[in-house]
């Protein structure tokens, strides 16, 4: 058999993608049901209420992958499939990278479905606002920057989740508690290191920046999140490759 890094990554990715199918469907179902319910129950300017189910569904689309990030890795241990994973001839970065890709897929699929469904509902209700939004490319750029910043933020959370879990696995006892403490600790340390960009408040800060149309602030925030994420990921990989034992 010919083997290649790409095929290996694909195998790992597809294996775990199976684990997030249900969540993506749940987000899609919630978004479509709530948004169409709000759409059908209202008329005229009252349709602005559509933003509420959208925000809820977006929250769900952002929250579920975080839960998944714990399940995806933890399940390998509880199913004993970790024996299979650890003995495969692949690097820790490929192993954790494939899981990161799956989580990213879940986040992208979930949020894009919500944005798409909500977008259509809003577009048909308020064609004027849509026209105004499209008239100035700055709005589009801002929207993309905000979405990008949310991606960087979720990356940070995923990587923190990985690092805290593999750290917890170094201990036979209370490994769950240790994971939880590391998870919280990393947030606190990150916030201390960067007082102006409080990561715990990522989303609300982005909102503020967004309303003030501070594109630069948003991008800097995203870059810092990504940097932190990369450091956490590297730490998780090192622990996975050198310290985890079965």
């Amino acid at each position: 058999m010919e083997t290649s890094k790409f095929k290996m990554f694909k195998s790992l990715y597809l294996k775990d993608l199976r684990e997030v199918r249900t969540e993506i469907l749940v987000v899609a179902a919630v978004a479509i049901i709530l948004i169409s319910w709000a759409y059908l129950k209202t008329e005229g300017s009252a349709r602005g209420i559509i933003v509420a189910p959208m925000a809820f569904a977006l929250g769900l689309a952002g929250f579920l992958p975080v839960i998944t990030s714990f399940r995806l890795l933890g399940k390998e241990w509880s199913n004993n499939t970790i024996y299979m994973m650890m003995s495969l001839p692949v690097s820790g970065s490929m192993m954790l990278g494939s899981k990161l890709a799956v989580l990213l897929t879940e986040y992208l699929a979930g949020t894009l479905i919500v944005l798409f469904a909500g977008g259509i509902a809003l577009l048909t209700s308020f064609p004027d606002i849509w026209k105004e939004f499209m008239s100035d490319p700055y709005y589009l750029k801002l929207a993309i920057a905000v979405y990008g910043a949310s991606l960087a933020g979720i990356f940070f959370i995923f990587c923190n989740s990985f690092l805290s879990q593999v750290t917890g696995k170094l201990f036979k006892k209370a490994s769950g508690l240790i994971s939880f403490l590391v998870f919280l600790g990393v947030f606190i340390i990150a916030a201390k290191l960067m007082p102006d960009t409080n990561i715990l408040l990522t989303q609300s800060q982005v909102m503020v920046s967004c309303s003030m149309q501070e594109m630069g602030a948003i991008l800097i925030k995203a870059a810092i999140d990504l940097l932190f994420a990369a450091v956490l990921f590297a730490g998780a990989v090192v622990i996975w490759e050198r310290r985890i034992e079965l």
């Binding site: 058999m1 083997t3 095929k7 290996m8 195998s11 294996k15 001839p89």
Partner: peptide, 10 residues
């Protein structure tokens, strides 16, 4: 199928 992608000796 999964295992075969990782080992050239499969």
């Amino acid at each position: 199928d999964f295992i075969s992608t990782f080992y050239s000796d499969w």
